[in-house]
Design a binder for these strands. Structure first.
Lengths: 342, 342
DNA sequence: TTGTAGGCGTTATCAG
DNA sequence: CTGATAACGCCTACAA
């Protein structure tokens, strides 16, 4: 199976330099054990021959692959529409790059299969660490990762779901308060929310925060759970707007659903923001450019990716990492929201 | 540096089964050389002990990493808005998954750095193959990959730019004809196009196709080149619409710019589609849900990703792969385009 | 300061 | 059919 071409190895460099194998290794790794002259000599030769360490050999020797694993487990239909993942990856890869790490991606169509991949990674050492996305309540991935100590893992979720695993979360309840207080100040008394899947950890947090704050302010609050897809967003919106006492403001857990809400209200002849205020939990280009533009929570997902990468690199170095919470929520006011007209 | 935990190796299994090292290897790999009894025995023990092949060792031995490399080299601002990359990755990873391959991602902020990463991959054997995106005219990446034979590569571009490297392209000129003929039938005589960066290979192809077809039909055709960003889309649209003989139809090379065109025409009080028809080269959720919805070319990017993965896997197997061209272009008619009003 | 030897975990060769 | 043994390329004691 070994039909490889002329790859330059350390032995080749050693031979060409007329020194031993280990001398070359020391020289190339900047370690003591060789004279300055020899080192210069070896470096020059290695450079000339175009030597680079073979990644597999290095991985075997170091027991480290210099890659971080991540599994994409979205339904195809939702994935193609998600900007969150792209932005996260941009931040992740940019930061990992600085230390010469790569992101190793696998995709999976089911949760069971994702567990299989994780188990394989744990057993095979294919990655040095793992990032877990979209954590659910009693997520078996968390249990699995928490029960082993071969591969460190960072969970992108509230620490209450990470079972002691280091986690990075955005302050969802802070954001919820920000949004609901804003709507309250505008005079809305009947508000609704089209949330993400109920089993998701961050949906749980948001649900709680919304219910609490709504109750505290004496608001009428109703919530439907959807799957983040435009179709589901449309369906939920129409259902809410058909209620006898329809809400005057609806909050959407992602931008895609918020956008289809615009379509829905347009279809039903309901004016935005005069008769209905719309707020999206995710900001994106789509919110900016839609007509009307959509008031949205800005979350700097790229920054989250960068931070996640930093934490993961610390974990790989063996450092202890506490659960971190980001609180850079900011509401961007646009045309889709306004005071209640009665 | 070897502070690893109790990973189960083949030797462990051998010891536990009371057979030799190689017997275990044969048994586990389903190869001849062991009795059926021994094989069953070994498999049972391996299963019980949770043995999985160590990926680094396997990579070293096989000289194959079972991963395919891809470099993201978008400007951050554009990347976060691109749905193309996400969809492509969805198709890629889904198909690679079936053969147990992973996608190895690195990101780069400059073309020079991307070359460095490629060189590193070639020399280190960190990936079994490479996918090259966004090929430009006289792209140094193509030259680099074409000048070596260690790592096969697939270029996502028209074969005229791949210098003999296997390539996968969508039939851009077919698509151009589709769009321009459609607009011609609607009675448009002054059409414009806001294209992608001029140095990109597929922009070149589209430019040529558009110029040819416009000339053939006797249409007035003008073209501005932008960077795919909403800002640039806005700028170019306003510039075109301010011309003395403004176009009555504008084609945009991506969905993002088409959407900002909607904003631009709205700002300038130009009715779509009555006074201006808009067509987007990329279809996406945004085109569906915008008001008005945008006529767009549907390209099945996920399918392209799948096909690319299949071709790459063939290359890895050592098969010859011809340049492939996809022709599944389909124009989805929506509200943003219509007959000329005079 | 240098070179030799052994290990990382696997697969493949070649005797028995 | 089995079991040593070498090889993959790198790192690192350890000995010279």
């Amino acid at each position: 199976m070994n039909s490889e071409r002329n790859r330059v190895t350390i032995s080749d460099v050693a031979k060409a330099s007329g020194v031993s194998n280990s001398a070359v290794s020391y020289a190339l790794n900047g370690k003591a054990g060789v004279s300055s002259d020899t080192r210069q000599q070896v470096l020059a030769v290695a450079q000339r021959m175009g030597w680079r360490p073979n990644s597999a050999a290095k991985a075997l020797s170091d027991a480290a692959t210099h890659s971080v694993g991540m599994i994409l487990t979205y339904a195809m239909s939702v994935l193609s529409v998600e900007s969150y993942t792209t932005e996260l990856m941009a931040g992740l890869t940019a930061e990992l790059e600085r230390k010469g790490y790569s992101l190793l991606i696998r995709s999976s169509s089911s949760h069971e299969y994702e567990l299989t991949v994780l188990q394989e990674w744990i057993a095979s050492g294919a990655v040095d660490a793992v990032l877990v996305l979209n954590v659910e309540l009693n997520d078996p991935r968390i249990s699995l990762l928490q029960s082993q100590h071969r591969i460190p893992a960072l969970a992108l979720c509230n620490p209450m779901f990470s079972q002691g695993l280091p986690s990075l979360s955005s302050n969802e309840s802070d954001a919820a308060h920000l949004i609901i207080d804003y709507l309250h100040e505008l005079g809305h008394t009947r508000i609704a929310r089209v949330a993400g899947p109920e089993r998701l950890g961050h949906t749980f947090i948001r649900d709680n925060a919304f219910m609490e704050e709504a109750a505290a302010l004496g608001l009428q609050y109703s919530c439907l759970h959807a799957d983040y897809s435009p179709e589901d967003g449309l369906r939920c919106t129409k259902r809410l707007l058909s209620l006898p006492h329809a809400p005057t403001a609806i909050v959407y857990d992602n931008d895609v659903m918020a956008l289809s809400a615009l379509k829905a209200s347009n279809d039903m002849g309901i004016a935005v923001p005069e008769a209905l205020s719309i707020v999206s939990w995710d900001d994106s280009f789509m919110c900016e450019v839609s007509v009307p533009s959509i008031t949205a929570l800005n979350r700097n997902v790229v920054g989250t990716g960068r931070l996640a990468a930093q934490l993961i690199l610390q974990l790989i170095e063996g450092k202890d990492v506490d659960s971190v919470s980001e609180t850079d929520n900011e509401l961007v006011f646009r045309e889709s929201s306004g005071p209640v007209h009665k």
